[in-house]
């Protein structure tokens, strides 16, 4: 309710743990009252709105390895939880090997917000509109987590459970996201349809990644991820399958886009209506897939 918005941040205790183990323990001991935070760009807004009322904010920046942005030509890219989006955008490794990730980051809000915003924060926030989620999904991101029983890894693909809901358990902290080496010669595209030219949240977001693949009958493999059109970020497998198994033509792309549009379940909200969103999933999927295809050939 609009009447609940606070003029400033309501009271809470700021906690800065010395290491990940301490952070996990504290969070596990206060499952309902403590929250980890990184840039705070979502948490602070939700606290002012009265949606979140944590008693403790646990600052997990600066903890073991969370500031690391590292590329290894054998294993891939690791983006630490505290690495802000501007750093990702400016990274020569990201620009060289994962330009789609930089493109997605660059579409988020404003430069000064991206000084604070992080990819891991964007993932943990689990908004269906999260701009970087699509790129993380199509690159096959793997989450590095730290919980009460120590570190572990989870694929991003099963992470989202609903708007704002993830598989994270009390005490879990995402320390980084890792991406394997992308397929050779792959091309990506993120199309974000916002109300403004830049800076807005997406009404619809379409992420496409494609590469040539002689193991499938069409000779191409595509991944498509959709934002703001379902309770969770969507990566419709039927699109991937269809484009792998049918000769790549404009008609095939139209059909794949139709499948994408069918796979989503958009709602009417202040940003846009369901009917429009479904249409846009189709049109923008055609656009993104076609653009990727053209660059591949």
């Amino acid at each position: 309710m609009i009447l609940d918005t606070h003029p400033a941040l309501p009271e809470f205790e700021y906690i800065r743990p010395a290491n990940l183990a301490e952070a996990s323990d504290f969070l596990a001991q206060h499952p309902d009252t403590a929250r980890p935070f990184l840039g705070g760009t979502d948490v602070f807004v939700r606290m002012r709105d009265g949606f979140m009322k944590p008693e403790f904010l646990v600052d997990v920046k600066n903890l073991d390895g969370t500031n690391e942005l590292r590329f290894d030509s054998r294993t891939g890219l690791t983006v630490g939880a505290a690495v802000n989006m501007n750093r990702v955008i400016a990274s020569p490794d990201v620009q060289a090997h994962y330009p789609l990730l930089a493109e997605a980051c660059r579409s988020v809000a404003s430069y000064q917000l991206r000084t604070r915003a992080t990819i891991v924060g964007n993932l943990c926030n689990a908004s269906p509109a999260g701009d970087t989620i699509g790129a993380c999904l199509v690159f096959g991101g793997v989450l590095h987590l730290h919980g009460v029983s120590g570190p572990r890894q989870e694929p991003l693909s099963g992470f989202f459970r609903g708007p704002g809901k993830t598989t994270l358990k009390p005490g879990d902290i995402v320390t980084a996201i890792h991406f394997p080496i992308p397929p050779n010669g792959c091309v990506g595209k993120y199309i974000k349809l916002g109300r403004n030219q830049l800076s807005d949240l997406s009404i619809v977001g379409v992420t496409a990644l494609g590469h040539k693949d002689s193991t499938c009958s069409s000779g191409y493999r595509f991944r498509l991820a959709l934002a703001s059109v379902a309770p969770v970020p969507l990566m419709p497998a039927e699109v991937e399958t269809y484009l792998a198994n049918n000769p790549l033509t404009p008609d095939a792309i139209n059909e794949a886009a139709r499948l994408a549009s069918q796979a989503c379940s958009p709602i009417d909200d202040v940003r846009g209506g369901a009917r429009y969103r479904r249409q846009m999933v189709r049109n923008l999927s055609v656009k993104a897939l076609t653009e990727v295809w053209k660059k591949l050939d």
Binding site: R195, N196, Q197, L198, S199, D200, V270, R271
Partner: peptide, 8 residues
């Protein structure tokens, strides 16, 4: 959600 024109 109340958007106004930006520099873009």
């Amino acid at each position: 959600d109340y958007r106004i024109a930006t520099s873009s």
